[in-house]
Structures are given as C-alpha cells and as structure tokens.
Amino acid sequence: MTASTPSGQSSGAGGDAGTTLPRSDALASERPPRREEPPDPSPLTLLDFYPPQDPRWTRIAPFFLALKDGRFTTTRCTRDGTFHWPPAVACPKCHREELQWVDLPTHGRLYAFSEVRGGAPLGMEGGVPFVVGLVDLPGAPLRLFSRIVGRPYAELALGEPVRFETFPIRDGRLFYRFRAGGEPATR
C-alpha cells in the first residue's frame, strides 16, 4: 500500500490525492512487529502505546508517510467534502468509506496557549516548562492542539503566526508540532 503523494507546495485545504484507504482485512494475515528495544524516556510514551505509524498496525499510515515528505495531511470525504481530524477511515458525517488524502495548511495562528510547568505525564517531566496551544489553520475548518516551540511563553501573543514542522522521534519516525517565529526546522 502506498500513500498518495500529490506533488508541489501544500497550498491550503484544497489539495487532492484521491487514494482510498486500505482495508484492514488486507492486513489480517500479517503479524504485528516485535518491539526490539525498551521504551526510551522521550515524550512519545503516550504515543507509543503501540507503534501507530506502522502500516501493519494502522490504516492511516499515509499520514505518517506524508510527514516524511514534510507534508501535513488529513482525510476528506469524497461525498460530502467533510474534513476529518484526526484522519479517519470512515466519514463520521455520512459513514461512507470513500475518503481522500488532502494537504492541510502549514501556516496558522495561535488561538489560545498555555505552558505546562508541572504535572506532566511520564516521559515529559524532564521537558517542563513547555508551551502548548490551539492553532487556527486558515482555510481548513480545524483548530489543532499542538506543542508550540520557537519562543518562550512570555514572548507569545494571541494571534501569533506559527508554522507546521516535523521532528524526529525514534526509529526513523517523525511527528509534527508548530513553531513560532524564525524558520521551520523540518527534519
């Protein structure tokens, strides 16, 4: 199975891909991979409950493959145009399974933000303080929650421009976050 990878700059919410999602029954005969190393103390304790990026585990692996191209994507219903977040395998509005991958805007603005100074989950205790926020993505009906990097809490303001970037986690995998100010440090 492959992710659809429309070429060119992501330019708002209208990118078109058109590959429907693989069906889980096609993968039923494959055995899940064995974890070969102990969990490391990265912030991914919460993500790596099981390896969700691997096509043997999930039907939305194209989202994570697109991150490797520096692209931020989600699914959209080919029938009613509904944007999904997180990426879906059936449309919550019409319950059809004919979905397409589309590019999301990579520039947004901070709708709200705060800073975690204590009470962080396992693996994140050493990272405090860190900033989190909700990012409005113009052109897409989405307001995404994300880690915010690039500027300390005290230097951020409502409406602050932020941009999508990816960052390495482990095993060659990537995840996403948003950066305020400066140039994006994708990969």
């Binding site: 919460l46 993500l47 997180p86 975690v116 990272g127 989190v132 995840f175």
Partner: peptide
Amino acid sequence: LDRPWDGVHGATAPP
C-alpha cells in the same frame, strides 16, 4: 483526552 493526537503533545487538564 484524545491520547495519540492531543495527549501526546502534553495535553492534560491544567493547560
């Protein structure tokens, strides 16, 4: 919260 999409960024109730 939505663990793999919100919780993973460090979202708990206080923030």
